Simulated assay, not measured.
Amino acid sequence: MYAVITFQDSDELMVVPSNWLSSDMKHCYWPPFKSTEKCMEAVQNKLNPETEGKPWEKLRIIFLGQYDTFEMAKEGQKQYKEYKERSYPLDTILPGIKRQKLESTQGMSNNQLQPLLPASPASTSRMSADDKVEILQMLRDIKSKVQQNSTMLKKFKDNTVSEAPSSTFVPSKDIKANLKLPLRTFEDVARTEMELKNATTRKKYIKYFSRLGGFVPKDVIKNIMQQVLTDDLAMQFNWQGRGNKKPFSQLMLTDVIRDAALNRNINRGYCETEIKKYLSYAPGRKKSKEQGGPGHEISNVISTSVMDNQPENRETFLIND
């Protein structure tokens, strides 16, 4: 398995093998290779974190998520990176001001902010009073936005650290095998429903699902559902059991997914909506896999967009099943 992490000292976002992480998910071994290509090769081959019997350097990290394959981890890394960039839209407002400078304005007064104006002294002296007032207001807005972004990023880091697996539980292939996932047949579903009547087993499932990773709520539910059902089996379900399909909403397993989502601060309504979408998109995912392409991702985006603008269309009916 692979993990997406951020190095605390450099703020770099990286994909690393899970066997490079410490048991508390707060440190990561890093190879001493100077070549970037050699480091990437070590990551993909999941080398033991040592050279000639000597352990590599341990670096402090923030654990963000864990994935079954390198490709899935790279996709997760891309999503984290996009979120991080969206958290700092101010670079596009004043391109000459770097992020570090913007962050340093948090404690500045309006007079202290004036040197950040992207204008020469001569042009400043020719500004009208209204222009100066407008620019000062813009800087106040920038200062407020920077404070909001910093607060949001701090909350994200705090939540990520608190959600990192403890030393007594790290989702792994062994645990997944013990839970016998993903379910492939109705017999598998019936067996799991029986198992979930046991409170201890139920807690194991909730714990495993809630630690599968995913940065935004949509990805959290998607990661859980990918572990729960194969696409072939997902095609046999819809939410209410309409037509010739089985009702997914009546399974104890569905309650377990809701509880796992709640552990990630995802409310019941949103969780159910994403489950409905996941079930309705199963045929598209299967077709895309058979064709060997990522086309289902595009169709999902298009279908979701249509649903937002035309509540009465067919896609919405499928998701509300």
Results as ranks from 00 to 15, higher is better:
residue 24 D to A: 05
residue 200 T to S: 13
residue 223 N to I: 06
residue 158 D to K: 11
residue 203 K to I: 06
residue 205 Y to A: 01
residue 275 I to S: 01
residue 16 V to Y: 02
residue 10 S to N: 06
residue 109 S to E: 07
residue 221 I to V: 15
residue 131 D to R: 10
residue 133 V to F: 07
residue 125 S to W: 05
residue 225 M to V: 05
residue 234 A to W: 02
residue 164 A to C: 06
residue 227 Q to R: 14
residue 190 A to S: 14
residue 49 P to W: 00
residue 222 K to P: 00
residue 27 H to E: 12
residue 283 P to S: 09
residue 196 L to N: 04
residue 260 A to R: 02
residue 199 A to G: 03
residue 120 S to N: 08
residue 28 C to G: 03
residue 311 P to E: 12
residue 126 R to F: 12
residue 27 H to K: 14
residue 70 F to N: 09
residue 300 N to G: 13
residue 206 I to R: 01
residue 186 F to A: 05
residue 91 D to Y: 04
residue 268 R to F: 05
residue 31 P to K: 00
residue 225 M to A: 08
residue 40 M to V: 05
residue 297 E to V: 13
residue 96 G to D: 11
residue 257 I to Y: 01
residue 64 L to C: 12
residue 319 I to C: 10
residue 101 K to Y: 07
residue 94 L to T: 08
residue 4 V to H: 06
residue 176 K to N: 09
residue 68 D to L: 11
residue 105 T to G: 02
residue 57 E to H: 09
residue 16 V to C: 04
residue 168 T to C: 04
residue 154 K to R: 13
residue 260 A to L: 02
residue 40 M to L: 15
residue 58 K to W: 09
residue 44 Q to L: 09
residue 263 N to K: 14
residue 273 T to W: 09
residue 193 E to D: 06
residue 256 V to T: 08
residue 241 G to P: 01
residue 160 T to G: 02
residue 11 D to Q: 12
residue 52 E to G: 01
residue 104 S to W: 04
residue 207 K to F: 00
residue 220 V to D: 01
residue 316 T to K: 11
residue 274 E to T: 02
residue 184 R to Y: 00
residue 156 F to S: 07
residue 195 E to Y: 01
residue 176 K to L: 14
residue 215 F to A: 06
residue 290 E to G: 03
residue 205 Y to L: 03
residue 1 M to S: 14
residue 106 Q to V: 14
residue 279 L to S: 02
residue 299 S to F: 13
residue 41 E to W: 02
residue 22 S to P: 01
residue 72 M to K: 14
residue 194 M to K: 15
residue 1 M to F: 04
residue 286 K to L: 15
residue 13 L to Q: 04
residue 176 K to R: 15
residue 201 T to C: 04
residue 60 R to Y: 08
residue 204 K to N: 07
residue 300 N to W: 12
residue 159 N to A: 06
residue 80 Y to C: 11
residue 226 Q to E: 14
residue 280 S to F: 03
residue 304 T to L: 11
residue 109 S to F: 02
residue 161 V to T: 13
residue 262 L to I: 07
residue 84 K to T: 12
residue 7 F to M: 12
residue 173 K to V: 11
residue 91 D to G: 10
residue 93 I to A: 12
residue 130 D to V: 10
residue 57 E to V: 08
residue 30 W to R: 03
residue 41 E to P: 00
